[in-house]
Design a binder for these strands. Structure first.
Length: 444
RNA sequence: GGAGACGUGCCGGAGUGGUCGAACGGGGCGGUCUCGAAAACCGUUGAGCCUUUACGGGUUCCCAGGGUUCGAAUCCCUGCGUCUCCGCCA
C-alpha cells in the first residue's frame, strides 16, 4: 500500500505534528490509548530518525554537487579546460549518488507518512472514554417531551402529512431513500431552512454562503472524506464529487490559504443539498425520511485561532441548540465518547431531538472541533499579528440543523389528536401567518 | 462542443540555459521628517525540510510529475488548472 498521490506531492502533512511526538511521545501515546490504540510513538520515532538520517545524507551530497557545479562556469570562463573537465566529471559522479540517496530519503518519508495516515486524531482530555455510543455522556437536557393523550404517530403516518410526503412516486423517479414532498409539507420544509439560515445570519453572526455542491477530488481529501470514506459519497462520471455535507465546501474555503490573524474567526453558514450513498446502512431507518440519499442541511463552519477553538465549539453548539429551542423541540446534548467519535474529531457534541413517534431522541446535529487536523491536510494557516511563522488554523463544523430531520421533529411533536399538526410560532411569519397543517393536509 | 492563450512571491508583473529565491511596481512592516497625520524619502518584507544550545549553516520550492543538460523559472513530454473567442444553454 503506497501513499495516495494527493499526499505524495508533499503539499500536505497528514494530521499529526511530528515535532510534538518527538517532544512528548508519552502524551501522544496516552491520548491514543484512550481510543484503544497501543503506543505507537516508538515506532514513529524510529522511522523518523531513519528518515532524517537519509535526508541529511542526500542533502550533503547535493551540497557538494552544487558547489562543484558553481565552479564549472568559472572554470570555463577562465579557459581552464582541465579544471572544467575535472569538475564536470565530479558533478556527474555525484549525480548518481544523489539519485540513490534521494530515493532512500523519499522511501523513508513515505513509510512514515503512511503510518501517520492511519492514526486517528487525538481526543481532548475532556472527552469521556468509552467503547461505543452507549458510553456517550449527556451534557444537557432541554424541554420536556410532551405527553400525548393518543398514540403518537411517526411522521409518515400522520394523516395531515401523508398526502405531502410521497415515497412511492419518489421511488418511481429515483429509487429507495428518496422522497417527494408537496403542498404544506414542502412549504414547511422550505420555511425551516429559511428560518435556520436567517437566525444564524441575524442573531449568530455567521456569514451566509451559497456554495457549489460538486467539488474537485482534492477538496474531499482536505476535510477527510477521502481517502478512507469514498464509498459513502457519490462521484460524477467526469470526476466531481457530490458533497455529503457543506462542511466540505465551507471548510475548504481556506484550502491552501494563509489568513491574517486579524481576520479570525471566520464563521460561515450555508443551506445546501447533501448527498450520501448510505453504504453500510442497509436496513437502518428504512421507513420515513430520516435517512435519505439526498437531503438538505444548514451547515455551520468556523475557522479560528487555535486558542479560541474550545470557546467556538461551545458557541457553535449553542447556535444549533438555539434553533431547537426557538422551535420548542425537546432535545438533549451529548458528548461523544472516544469510541464513538469519527477519526478526524478531537471532540464532538451530538444534539438529539425528541421524536414522539419513535419515543426516542434521534441525532439532528453533530458538532465537532477538528483541531488542526483538517488544516494540516488543507495547508490552511494564519499569520500571527505579532509576526513570526504561519501556524495552522483550527476548524470546526456542525449542523445547524439537518432540515429534513428537523421537519420530522416538527411534524411529530406538533401532531394533534385530529391528525392535524400545529406548527411552531417562529415559523408562522415564514408561512404568511399560517399556523397549522389541517387534517386534510392543507396549510391554514 | 470548436479555436486559442496562459500558470512566477501577499497582489500586479518582468525574466527564454549559469552570477535568479527571482527585476520593477503596489501592499505590509520599521525608520526619518511632523505637535500629530498625510506626502516624501530611507530601509525591510516568502515557505517547507535537515542541522545547530544559540548565532548560523545546508537543502528544496517560479502549477504538478517526468525528461534533456555539467547546470533549468527558462528547453522537451505528460497531467492538472485558469482565462478569452465562437457555438449551445438554465
Amino acid at each position: 500500500m503506497g501513499t495516495h498521490p494527493y499526499f505524495a506531492n508533499q503539499r500536505t502533512k497528514p494530521m499529526h505534528d511530528i515535532r510534538m511526538i518527538r517532544d512528548n511521545p508519552a502524551a501522544f501515546d496516552a491520548a491514543l490509548s484512550r481510543r484503544g490504540i497501543a503506543g505507537l510513538s516508538s515506532q514513529i520515532l524510529t522511522l523518523d530518525e531513519e528518515r532524517r538520517a537519509k535526508i541529511l545524507a542526500a542533502e550533503t551530497a547535493q551540497a557538494d554537487a552544487n558547489a562543484a557545479a558553481k565552479q564549472v562556469g568559472a572554470a570555463k570562463a577562465s579557459g581552464d579546460e582541465a579544471e572544467f573537465e575535472r569538475l564536470r566529471a565530479l558533478v556527474a559522479t555525484k549525480k548518481a549518488e544523489i539519485a540513490a540517496l534521494n530515493e532512500e530519503a523519499k522511501a523513508a518519508d513515505v513509510t512514515l507518512n503512511d503510518l501517520m495516515l492511519t492514526i486517528p486524531n487525538l481526543p481532548y482530555d475532556d472527552v469521556p472514554m468509552g467503547a461505543d455510543e452507549a458510553e456517550n455522556v449527556e451534557l444537557k437536557k432541554q424541554g420536556t417531551p410532551k405527553t400525548f393523550d393518543f398514540k403518537a404517530l411517526e411522521h409518515f403516518e400522520i394523516p395531515s402529512v401523508v398526502p405531502g410526503m410521497d415515497f412511492e412516486t419518489a421511488a418511481k423517479l429515483s429509487g429507495s431513500r428518496f422522497v417527494l414532498l408537496s403542498g404544506a409539507v414542502a412549504r414547511v420544509h422550505r420555511a425551516l431552512a429559511q428560518f435556520m439560515l436567517d437566525t444564524h445570519v441575524e442573531e449568530n453572526d455567521l456569514i451566509e454562503t451559497n456554495t457549489p455542491v460538486m467539488v474537485r477530488e482534492e477538496m474531499m481529501y482536505g476535510t477527510g472524506q477521502l481517502p478512507k470514506f469514498g464509498e459513502d459519497s457519490y462521484q460524477t462520471t467526469n470526476g466531481w464529487w457530490l458533497i455529503p455535507t457543506a462542511e466540505v465546501t465551507l471548510t475548504n474555503i481556506v484550502n491552501n490559504a494563509t489568513l491574517d490573524e486579524a481576520a479570525l474567526p471566520r464563521r460561515f453558514a450555508a443551506h445546501t443539498l447533501c448527498f450520501r450513498s448510505e453504504a453500510g446502512s442497509a436496513g437502518r431507518d428504512t421507513s420515513g425520511m430520516l435517512r435519505q440519499h439526498q437531503f438538505e442541511k444548514v451547515e455551520m463552519v468556523t475557522i479560528c485561532h487555535p486558542d479560541t477553538s474550545d470557546a467556538e465549539h461551545l458557541r457553535m453548539t449553542a447556535c444549533a441548540e438555539g434553533i431547537l429551542e426557538k422551535l420548542n423541540l425537546p432535545y438533549r446534548t451529548v458528548i461523544l465518547c472516544t469510541g464513538d467519535m469519527s477519526a478526524g474529531a478531537r471532540r464532538t457534541h451530538d444534539i438529539e431531538v425528541w421524536l414522539p413517534g419513535q419515543n426516542a431522541y434521534r441525532e439532528i446535529s453533530s458538532i465537532s472541533t477538528c483541531g488542526d487536523y483538517q488544516a494540516r491536510r488543507m495547508n490552511a494557516r494564519f499569520k500571527p499579528t505579532e509576526g513570526g511563522k504561519p501556524e495552522f488554523l483550527h476548524t470546526l463544523n456542525g449542523s445547524g440543523l439537518a432540515v429534513g430531520r428537523c421537519l420530522i421533529a416538527v411534524l411529530e411533536n406538533g401532531q394533534q389528536a385530529d391528525g392535524s399538526v400545529a406548527l411552531p410560532e417562529v415559523l408562522h411569519p415564514y408561512l404568511r401567518g399560517k399556523t397549522t397543517i389541517n387534517a386534510s393536509g392543507k396549510l391554514v
